[in-house]
Design a protein around this nucleic acid. Sequence first.
RNA 1: CGGGGUAUGGCUCAAUGGUAGAGCGCCCGGUUUGGGACCGGGAGGUUCCCGGUUCAAGCCCGGGUACCCCGACCA
Length: 566
Amino acid sequence: MRLSQYYIPTLKEAPKDADTLSAKLMLRAGLIRKTSSGIYEWLPLGLRVLKKVEQIVREEMDRACGCEVWLPVVQPKELWQESGRWTFYGKELLRFEDRKGAEFCLAPTAEEVITATVRRDVTSYKQLPVFLYQFGTKFRDEIRPRFGVMRAREFYMKDGYSFHATEECANKTYQAAYDAYNRIFERCGFKFKPVEADTGSIGGNFSHEFMVLADTGENEIAHCTCGYAANTEKAEIIAASEGAKEDFKAIEKVSTPNATTIDDVSKMMGEHADKFIKLLVFIADKQPVIVLMKGNDELNEHKLRSLLKAQELEKANEEVYSKTTGSPVGFAGPQNIKGVKIYADNAVKNIFNGVAGANEKDAHVKNVNLGRDYNVDIFADLKIAVKGDKCAKCGAEFMFTRGIEVGHTFKLGTKYSTAMKATFLDEQQKANPFIMGCYGIGISRVVAAAIEQSHDDNGIIWPEPIAPFDICLVGIDDDINEEVKAKCEEVYKLAQDMGFSVLFDDRKERPGSKFKDADLCGIPNRIVISSRTVKEGQCEFKKRTDKEAVRWQLSEIKSNLETLKR
RNA sequence: CGGGGUAUGGCUCAAUGGUAGAGCGCCCGGUUUGGGACCGGGAGGUUCCCGGUUCAAGCCCGGGUACCCCGACCA
């Protein structure tokens, strides 16, 4: 491709609304443009990368015996009502009507459509398993899109779905998908880690997220020398070892006017935050529940949701809080709570002579003790893993890194097949719901993640397998020096004949501009031909990551190019 | 949805209530020619929209919209 005829509108300055490094670079390098909040145009250079990633994913999915299909983006309300998600999905589902007033949504994912497809065509265990996947535009009307294409409303995704007669078979395909994902992200040249993830309200037995490791990642990963790695939303920890047992002291009320936060009360009373029993009220599927946490430990709502097996979980508002606890917000304690289930994090077991709200305005109580002053229905691990917490598998302290979630594999179970009455007949002629798995990769997010992981001050550094071009050929003086021009054309043709994709910068620009653009666009290999090098029968070669260029004899260019082949 | 902010040329930003500007980019001419050159000339604006105050509004007031940032969701 000749740059003079290519569409790469590069920018010296990033638009001010670009919030992340990858977004800035993608805009500056002319990969994307923003159309609207969370909605982007993909320009030629960006699209080439997207297609490279897509092809790698396609090859590995095919290798895992997936069959590519293409499903509609516009999907009818009726299907979504069958699964119950027309109401449950909420505002993220963009809905609209056609000219007849029939209601539709833009696909945020495709479980409904694919389940309906398979339900129609597959009736016997003999036809199973079925493993289908597609690439397609997804739309999720996120409340707050950000980070460029990383958290966009409209994005490009590979979504795959498998259907099985037995758990064994489902697990086998899950494993195949898991292996395929590992190969995909290896082939993309990523430093990444598959981690155990929260299965949330969907249930099922496993779920893994594939995290591209980058300091700027949105997700925090807890991992351990024993090999365990999990999203901190999920990471299982062992409760801190038993604190020193203390004799129960007499309960004592303390006036704490206007102090509703742990910090305030802690200062006012001179007690360490570890002594505090924090009380939270949640509404789980319309039922109020109370959760106790130690001092400054943070509740992991995902863990609570799994424990309660709740579809909906939200923090109670002031009114419900007061009604449930009989206390104004910020002053509730676990003493004398009746008729509400009390859950507590394991760490609460070890609080002796603790501090809690006094269940009346502007007062707290000291020396509150489990068993004497309050009881807990269920103790569980409910805490977000933080530094210092220990791995539940082996007891060693967790290490933490950040990551970008680029893929998610999910064992769905029969959630959708049951809801949508998608069944097959087994050998006993009994109708069973399909056991399902689903597997997603955010293709457009992968592109941004690659940049987050690989860049320098001058621009993008593409991993070779997903680079938009293999070689950037830069002509200097090619507009005024016939010999340079001829050599450029020669090398341009040769490299392409050898199977390389080449971006030839044949613009009438000064060298500085060409080099800056080449670095910004991040093409892995650069060849420079100028009057200076041609005079000596040479050209320059430099990897994007190299500091200095080396000289190649033009007469030996072919064998030199051979060395670039993988 | 709650809280905070912004909106002026393609991009980044200026402009006491009194003729709307600069840098970069773009076009033309010249000088240059290895890390975003220099000189001269030029094009490009409904100052987000609607309304109000005023002799006069980019600026003040009211309403709206879009976009961004901080929180709960997700590939």
